[in-house]
């Protein structure tokens, strides 16, 4: 395929070449940065990452260690004898530990005795249904998004109408209404009875997976179309024309020629869509809390009136973010490529 790539105008070709010849870029030696650069980069990265690290570590602490300052950052199993109080030990040492910040000028102890008690409590509260609901909602809506967005983006890339930019803008504009502004109308529309003054027409979608998937699809459709269209635009016109001259049908054109070329872009779009759906909080709480609770709802449950249990909250937050963070880490290269495509044209 690479050999037939024609030199089109300016910018797009570089990007197109990047998919076609991934090896080449890797082969080029970049400048080796100075050690100072490396140190700077590491410091910046650790500072940026610190909130997440702090959250994850706190989830493995006893509650009494969780509020200590300076934060205890070093998990050292089995040190409860020396400094950190463990469960079961009388309340006295816990009080000392709580007073620690006041006397922090003395020896600073950054160690803590890691524990799984928070996770045991949390998992004792039935985490799996929430996880399953989040997974269904994210994957289901993403599948539907792709089903709608791929043809639409391709269609837009062909520029079938002079108003194609308006169409694109319309999709983006569907995101302008704040969720909080539409929530009551949505609630009424989703309820079984609807608004009696408007004939009582309701969809009976409250608390259902269907309802959540429908909304998340609408939520992610604009950015998916936006991203995918840019990818399709990347495909050189000649390739499309050639396919058409060959008498290939639209379907063949899409599945056999286009899709493989834009696969990285599709992957990136899929990831973005999953990330936004998984992390969505407000619609889930408002419309699906009864019956189809997702992971964010599980998490806020631990913000209770019982007291602020940082460790428990941190552990539940960690559980909530973990799947997506891991997915994002694995998919970061696709994300890097995918997100930037919109800039090319």
């Amino acid at each position: 395929m690479q050999t037939t790539l024609p030199r089109t105008s300016s910018a797009p070709s570089t990007a197109a070449r990047r998919w076609a010849l991934p090896r080449r870029r890797r082969g080029v030696q970049k400048d080796q940065a100075s050690p100072a650069w490396a140190v700077l980069a590491w410091v910046v990265a650790l500072v940026t990452f610190f909130p997440v690290l702090h959250m994850v570590l706190t989830g493995f602490k006893h509650e009494s260690d969780a509020v200590d300052l300076p934060p205890r950052l070093l998990p050292v199993p089995g040190i409860e004898e020396s400094a950190a109080p463990a469960e079961g030990v009388s309340a006295e040492p816990a009080a000392d530990a709580a007073d620690a910040p006041a006397e922090a000028t003395g020896g600073v102890d950054l160690r803590f005795d890691p524990t799984l008690e928070q996770y045991e409590t949390i998992l004792g509260r039935e985490f799996m249904p929430f996880f399953r609901n989040s997974a269904f909602a994210s994957l289901g809506s993403t599948a539907l998004v792709m089903l709608l967005a791929i043809p639409a983006a391709y269609g837009l890339a062909l520029r079938p109408t002079k108003k194609w930019k308006d169409v694109l803008f319309f999709f983006i504009s569907t995101r302008f209404l704040p969720a909080s502004g539409v929530i009551v109308p949505l609630y009424i529309l989703f309820s079984a009875n609807g608004d009696p003054k408007l004939g009582g027409f309701g969809l009976d979608l409250l608390g259902t997976m269907r309802g959540l998937i429908i909304l998340y699809t609408a939520m992610n459709l604009p950015i998916a179309i936006w991203m995918l269209r840019s990818f399709f635009e990347e495909v050189p016109r000649d390739v499309l024309d050639a396919a058409r001259v060959d008498g290939a049908g639209v379907m063949r054109e899409m599945t056999q020629i286009l899709l493989p070329m834009v696969a990285p872009g599709i992957a990136a779009t899929v990831f973005i869509s999953i990330i936004f759906a998984w992390n969505e909080f407000f619609l889930a709480v408002s419309l699906a809390a009864v019956g189809t609770s997702t992971v964010p709802i599980f998490m806020v449950k631990f913000v209770t009136a019982e007291g602020l249990f940082w460790a428990k909250l941190a552990a539940s937050s960690t559980m909530a973010v973990l799947p997506i963070v891991l997915l994002g880490w694995i998919a970061q290269k696709q994300l890097v490529r995918g997100l930037s495509m919109g800039a090319v044209k």
């Binding site: 309820s191 009875n193 608004d195 409250l206 608390g207 709480v285 408002s286």
Partner: peptide, 13 residues
């Protein structure tokens, strides 16, 4: 929020 919307709109969840 959830209870108020449910009761006042008579959604019946």
């Amino acid at each position: 929020q959830v209870i108020t919307q449910d009761v006042t709109t008579q959604a019946g969840q």
